[in-house]
């Protein structure tokens, strides 16, 4: 039965598409070890020099640092605001709830170019210079809805009796929130943070419009695409980033899996 399942036409199709999705990553990793300044087939020979050269690529490392800062700051804000909204939406019914849900999900579907333009004009209007700060703010707009969905799913997934029990025993609403609800939601919060961070770290379309003199990594990468001889270095970094982000995603999916189980651990 089991063997048959994996010899099926469907599984072959799955493998084919999985290969299609992973092919570009594979190609980049292979090229990162290729001993040639040109990224062309056939391959020349094995080298680690691109990886060692990375250590001296200051502009590149600055861009990585900028992206990490923007990622951390914007994810932190997104998780705080997203979790607050999720707590209200999952536990209360109030006028404007549906409206807020509709509005807050718009950033998920609106073309980014529209959001970029609107934010460029906002910052021009209020006199905030385009900068990493502007990029971080833009990233919160696209990440808050995701955080809300992830955390609300977690809150909907466990019974409210724990919260009720805590309050019956004399805990205040806010005490219950801090000592019961949030600890239970912790895996979802962590998953939401990681997902926000990876989105921000990789986000290009908004960052391109909103960075000032300092670049985030994707904006820097974009500027390097025009210079073929600088690409091997970029590709080596890409290989590292891809491996790290794959690990981060697997970790965050794992957290979310724990996070959305119906009964929280220790509550059986």
């Amino acid at each position: 039965m089991r063997a048959q399942r994996y010899l099926s036409f469907g599984f072959a199709y799955y493998l084919l598409l999985a290969l299609f999705l992973y092919l570009p990553i594979l190609v980049l990793v292979i090229f990162s070890f290729n001993d040639s300044t040109l990224l062309v087939y056939p391959l020349k020979g094995f080298t680690l020099r691109w990886y060692s050269a990375l250590l001296n690529a200051h502009e590149l490392l600055d861009a990585v640092r900028n992206s990490v800062i923007v990622g951390f700051a914007s994810s932190f804000v997104s998780v705080v605001f997203g979790a607050m909204a999720a707590l209200a939406i999952a536990r209360f019914n109030f006028p404007g709830r549906g409206f807020f849900l509709a509005i807050s999900s718009l950033p998920l579907v609106i073309p980014y170019v529209v959001l970029s333009v609107a934010l460029v004009l906002l910052f021009a209007q209020i006199g905030v210079p385009l900068s990493l700060f502007a990029v971080g703010v833009a990233h919160t707009v696209i990440n808050i809805p995701y955080v809300m969905l992830i955390v609300a799913a977690r809150l909907a997934g466990f019974e409210q009796n724990l919260e009720e029990a805590a309050m019956d025993l004399g805990a205040t609403y806010w005490g219950t929130l801090m000592r019961v609800t949030l600890p239970i939601a912790a895996p979802a919060l962590a998953a939401a943070f990681l997902s926000s961070f990876t989105t921000s770290f990789d986000e290009f379309a908004l960052a391109f419009f909103l960075t000032g003199t300092e670049n985030t990594l994707p904006v820097y990468l974009y500027s390097q695409l025009r210079f073929p001889n600088r690409l091997p270095l970029v590709v080596a970094l890409a290989a590292i980033i891809m491996l790290v982000s794959v690990l981060l995603i697997i970790f965050s999916e794992w957290l979310r899996r724990i996070g959305t189980q119906t009964t929280p651990r220790g509550a059986e």
Partner: peptide, 13 residues
């Protein structure tokens, strides 16, 4: 998983 790795670099690839 691949969808969450760098968009620009997958395009470059």
């Amino acid at each position: 998983v691949p969808a969450w790795t760098s968009f620009l670099l997958r395009i470059l690839s």
